[in-house]
């Protein structure tokens, strides 16, 4: 298997508690892989450690053959590994369009001297960035909201904006944190189509956390089940969900 992301023996402690306790797994290039598990199993902590929002206490994270363990999030991002947040983190008082235009790295106009002395260069680059932003907006059906404040979007639209922001960077891999939470069933179905379509056309690898089993079963071709900070089982959705240990872990969390 050609693993784009390889996580080995990941450990993260908060105080004396092990949120992630030696998790080892891989995400295949070009796949849509899901991670499930009861609350507190360490899924989001895993994400944060991979994306550089948290520094792991142990283990290794290898992305595209390079060790990215403990790199700050902006450097992880620059390697083509980008993420969305469980609770959408839109830039409320900016337009949807500029929420996307802020994403591309190394913009000439991001150096204050260039915006004073070489406005024509900045302008040319802005035109191409705006074009790209419009393409991405069309991709997630948000074209008509381009000039609206991001803070005025509905909950579902914010999820789409999260996805659009991730796409804007032309990433190799996107970590999606609970993309379906708080989204109505119609939009959830469209979300599955969007994500699968993006994988087909741009070859982006997706690594997804979600609680909604139905959604995950339809979306992913591979599932990793976390429990107590470790990987419980790994495999195709159907076989994973029929696994008795998994059922026990979930039932356990329901009765707890």
């Amino acid at each position: 298997m050609d693993a784009l992301l390889d996580v080995h023996g990941l450990v993260k402690r908060f105080g004396g508690n092990y949120a992630v306790d030696g998790a080892t797994f891989g995400v295949e290039r070009g796949s849509i892989t899901g991670m499930i598990g009861p609350n507190g199993a360490g899924k989001t902590t895993c994400f944060n450690c991979i994306a550089g929002s948290l520094v792991p206490d142990g283990g290794r994270v290898v992305y595209d053959g390079e060790d990215i363990t403990g790199l700050p999030s902006y450097r992880v991002f620059r390697r083509g590994l980008t993420r969305t947040f469980q609770i959408p983190q839109e830039l409320s008082a900016m337009t949807v369009l500029e929420n996307l235009m802020v994403v591309p790295a190394e913009q000439a106009g991001e150096r204050v001297v260039d915006s004073w002395l070489r406005p024509w260069r900045v302008a040319a680059q802005e035109r191409s960035i705006a074009e790209r932003a419009h393409e991405v907006l069309a991709e997630v059906d948000l074209t008509h909201e381009a000039q609206n404040y991001a803070g005025n979007l509905s909950g579902g639209q914010r999820k789409l904006l999260e996805l659009a922001r991730a796409l804007m960077s032309e990433p190799g891999m996107i970590l999606l944190d609970e993309p379906s939470a708080g989204v109505n069933p119609t939009l959830t179905r469209r979300l599955v189509e969007h994500i699968q379509g993006l994988r087909e056309r741009f070859g982006i690898t997706f690594f997804v956390i979600a609680h909604d089993m139905d959604f995950m079963q339809r979306l992913c071709e591979r599932l990793i089940v976390m429990a107590d900070g470790q990987v419980l089982v790994e495999g195709e959705p159907r076989e994973v969900l029929e696994n008795t240990e998994v059922q026990a872990a979930y039932l356990g969390s329901v009765t707890a």
Partner: peptide
């Protein structure tokens, strides 16, 4: 624009590489 992004949500600005 980066400044306003930082004002609105510094974590987001960081997560897109600023």
């Amino acid at each position: 624009r980066v400044l306003r992004a930082i004002r609105e949500n510094e974590a987001t600005a960081q997560s897109v590489g600023k």
